[in-house]
Design a protein around this nucleic acid. Structure first.
Lengths: 359, 359
DNA sequence: CATTTTACTTAACGTTGCTTAACACCATCT
DNA sequence: AGATGGTGTTAAGCAACGTTAAGTAAAATG
């Protein structure tokens, strides 16, 4: 046969649902069966044009690579992107590690990109990831007010999942903790200690997580009669440095706070460091608590009281949702709220061993 | 104008957007294919007139240089890979951050892959990175005795740079610190304190960096008459957990050491944590020092004495070397030894402020 | 007029992208 | 069971292509 080739009505002649063979696709596309095989198995050595053409025809004819152990989907690049503000904050690196591990288990590679919370970077990164045909993106560095990146992804029909932070007005799957409840519990614990002069230091307000925590902090304190406002309500960079600067402002004041509640462990560490540098004792002179539950901050070296976030669970869930979207795009969105836990250390004023420390 | 373009309807022709070859452009312009190539690549040696003419025709025909005979264009993908044992150790994340930043500045995206120091993972990762046609790889997780990954890269002519650790018997560009000198200085400082009962805890011995440090530790101690051997010479995982376990072994012994010198800050933190849990004081009961110089361990919260490695400089240099190799492959290799610095904290027994703490 | 420079061609690669053909696999039919 | 044919996979082959060194002729230069 072979010689036949060319011509041959490609599609129209389907009066009955005959079996569609790879050879039929090859003929319709004007290529050899081998080329079809290469495309369906995601091998390289086929030009992008030809690949597209073959996939299009295969789709029209309803060809299913009915064989055995073929790759799930030849259209996938098996690459995902992970966008985060930076990769130095241990909270972020924890997520990154678990996302990379989960991805590797599914045969995906991960582009890791950092924005430093710069809107331009974020938009730029989304563009290049889209240009690289990633199958999906997990975003742990969304900005509340800048939706350019998200719009780029939506336009290109690239699935994405928010992790911890989200953009206002752009819907999407979300994985996080209940920031409001967690922050309330943490503040309540501080209030239970009897502290009344309280300050809060959170990360940037363009992060929905930071905002939610600050709001809950302030509301809970207010309910107990403690006012947190003005110079006692600080937003800073999400790093130890940010905490250092904030602590300086707070402790330089004529009425320094008795307790400092932070929206992140890294910030809390910066606050602690500055307090120690001034010769203050923690928690005797000033109590400091955080909100990430990093292993390090919970260790006896630091003994921080903090909200423990289930890092692995969050990352795994985010990747799972992404895979799900990749497999079958949907228009409804899922919110996953992971269970947090209040870890009682010594930095709040509780005695050592007040609660069982956990690994 | 124009020589009327040797016939040939450019686009309208038939259903498909027929492929336009450089030869076709050459014919239409009445020149040789080589000349077209020179123009397209912006080489000189072509008159302005000819150049303009060719560009015009190429544009009319919609010529797209469909990389066929394209000589090994080194910048095929503008993607590099970064392989490291894990992305939770702050030392590694520091490198990762700077490599990602440097890459982004040059328009590269980065695949981050973690091996957990498993030889199979490492080999696997090298294969998939090679299959993805990365332009180069930076390896911070090389194993001394397993060269499969490196062989894969060499076979595919993919440039690579070792960071901090290297594989025995496989040459390559290397960026690191002078582990031997650094470790000697650190040990010497401990010896200067007058400690004689000394233990060392290093990372896995399949890391060249760990090995080099252990050897220097032991040699320097021996030169001062202090013997470190048997249960006092421990290799463990490169994490706080590893340090915890090691400390347990050391301090459970009937003759616990007075000083513990660690090959990594993370390990040292684990050691410290366990010591504190036993109610020991640092440095009064046991001195503990590390070797990475993480910002956190140097902070007043911990006050670790440690070797400071120039993280940014190392990462930038590694990426620079990689770019250099990508641009012009070479067969000679460069070793870059970055300057380290001994940071004196309080964990060794020095009084606070013995040396100026640095940011 | 001798020599260098400029502007292009020729020809030899090394690739890419696809085809041909050999092969392994499975179901069905003797 | 063994033979048969259809099917998808894979190695080997090969033509087309863009690149570049080497070559050459004309123009510029001294």
């Amino acid at each position: 046969m072979v010689g036949a080739t060319a011509a041959v009505t490609p599609v129209q002649n389907s009066q009955r649902p005959a079996k569609i063979s790879a050879a039929a696709v090859a003929r319709a596309a004007g290529v050899s069966p081998a080329t079809v095989s290469y495309v369906m198995n995601g091998r390289q050595g086929v030009s992008a044009d030809t690949r597209r053409q073959i996939l299009k025809i295969a789709n029209e004819l309803g060809y299913r690579p009915s064989g055995h152990g073929r790759l799930p989907d030849p259209l996938l690049t098996r690459v995902v992107g992970f966008i985060l503000p930076n990769i130095t904050n241990p909270m972020h690196t924890g997520w990154a590690q678990h996302i990379i591990t989960a991805s590797a288990a599914e045969g995906f590679d991960v582009f890791v990109a950092t924005t430093f919370d710069d809107p331009e970077s974020l938009a730029q990164i989304a563009s290049t990831l889209a240009a690289r045909n990633v199958d999906g993106v997990i975003i742990a560095g969304a900005l509340r007010e800048d939706s350019r990146a998200l719009r780029t992804l939506r336009q290109r029909r690239i699935p994405y999942v928010y992790l911890s932070r989200r953009a206002d007005h752009v819907p999407g799957d979300f994985v996080g903790i209940d920031d409001d409840t967690a922050a309330s519990q943490l503040m309540q614990h501080i209030l239970d200690h009897g502290y009344t002069e309280i300050a809060t230091v959170i990360g940037p307000r363009f992060s929905t997580a930071s905002m939610a925590r600050e709001i809950a902090f302030v509301r809970t304190a207010a309910a107990a009669g403690a006012d947190i406002s003005g110079p006692r309500k600080i937003s800073t960079r999400l790093s130890a440095d940010g905490g250092l600067v904030a602590a300086q402002q707070l402790l330089d004041s004529s009425a320094p706070p008795r307790a400092i509640v932070c929206g992140s462990d890294e910030i809390a560490m910066g606050v602690m460091e500055h307090a120690l540098a001034r010769g203050l004792r923690i928690p005797e002179d000033v109590a400091v608590v955080g909100s990430d539950g990093l292993t390090h901050s919970r260790s006896r070296l630091i003994g921080m009281t903090t909200i423990v976030q289930p890092v692995k669970q969050m990352a795994d869930r985010a990747f799972e949702l992404l895979l799900d979207q990749i497999a079958s795009p949907r228009t409804t969105y899922t919110q996953t709220i992971c269970a947090h836990r209040l870890h009682i250390g010594t930095s709040c004023g509780c005695p050592a061993g007040a609660a069982p420390a956990s690994p």
